[in-house]
């Protein structure tokens, strides 16, 4: 093999195929966890909206890696960094991940996919539940650029609110809560909160469950909103690199893979009625 070919392979290997040690895996309440993986000083510079695919290495059990948006990158003072994942335990895969403890080795590929295009002076970020993961990282990037994004987060109940409240320092956030009563918090879902809010914005970034995105899209269409909207979608995935074609998203250009063509799509690209 020619030397330059070796170099290329070696570089890409370093770039996409990583491992690290769990530094913490904190339960925030209501099934939400924040996982911090120390990755040392490897080159790892994800863009907001990109994700990592965490391998469970459970060959006779639940086999597929699980994709998670990057929630944040923590840079340590003494060189090295950590990648953070915000997730909710919903099935066997996330249950296994929730059992990781400090010092466990985690293998993952990434950063994968295409992140958000960062534009605008007055960004509005709309998150449903754990969809805040990718938007938190985006918000930090805006703040580094001296832009203060407005953030709307919809949570299901008081427990979820308490789980989230406190992990988003220094962000301009309004919550909505679907069940229960909390003084000062909007009662309803986050799309309803968006509809009544008078926030001035010039670009929207949105991430959450498919039904939430669909109801946003209905409003977007019926009100003829012309602002650019970037949607971070989710899908069941296997390979994460465009090989298996398992995570197709119906778009105006036909089926496209959530993992390599997304997970971020412009709102007009997606055929929403066919999205499941």
């Amino acid at each position: 093999m020619p030397f330059h070919y070796y170099l290329k392979v070696h570089f890409e290997y370093k770039y996409k195929c990583n491992s690290g040690l769990v530094s913490s895996n904190n339960e925030l309440g209501s099934g939400f966890f924040l996982l911090t993986i120390d990755i040392g000083s490897i080159y790892f510079e994800p863009a907001p909206g990109q994700f990592i695919n965490i391998y469970l290495n459970d060959e006779y059990g639940y086999m597929l890696p699980r994709p998670f948006s990057v929630f944040n990158i923590v840079k340590y003072e003494n060189l090295g960094s950590a990648v953070q994942i915000l997730y909710k335990v919903i099935g066997r895969g996330t249950k296994i991940i929730s059992q990781l403890t400090k010092g466990d080795r985690v293998e993952f590929t990434g950063p994968l996919g295409n992140g958000f295009i960062i534009e605008g002076e007055k960004p509005l970020l709309i998150a449903g539940g754990v969809g805040i993961a990718s938007l938190n990282f985006l918000a930090r990037r805006f703040k580094e650029n001296k832009i203060e994004p407005k953030v709307l987060i919809g949570v299901r109940d008081e427990m979820s609110y308490r789980a989230f409240n406190g992990i988003f320092n220094n962000l301009d956030i309004q919550f909505s809560i679907e069940r229960g009563e909390l003084d000062t918090i909007f009662k309803g879902n986050v799309i309803e909160l968006y509809s009544i809010s008078d926030i001035d914005y010039d670009v929207i970034y949105i991430c959450g469950p498919t039904n939430m995105l669909k109801s946003f899209e209905e409003i977007y269409r019926s009100k003829n909103i012309i602002t650019k909207v970037y949607c971070c979608l989710e899908s069941r995935m296997a390979c994460g690199v465009g090989a298996c074609l398992g995570c197709s998203i119906p778009t105006k250009d036909g089926y496209r893979s959530c993992c390599v063509d997304g997970p971020v799509f412009e709102i007009g690209e997606v055929i929403w009625k066919d999205l499941t």
Partner: peptide
């Protein structure tokens, strides 16, 4: 074009695909 999504589902020790 292939099949409409969803296309994959994980089962105990198994993977079902419908690409």
């Amino acid at each position: 074009d292939g099949n409409p999504p969803p296309r994959i589902y994980e089962t105990p020790s198994g993977l079902i695909n419908s690409v």
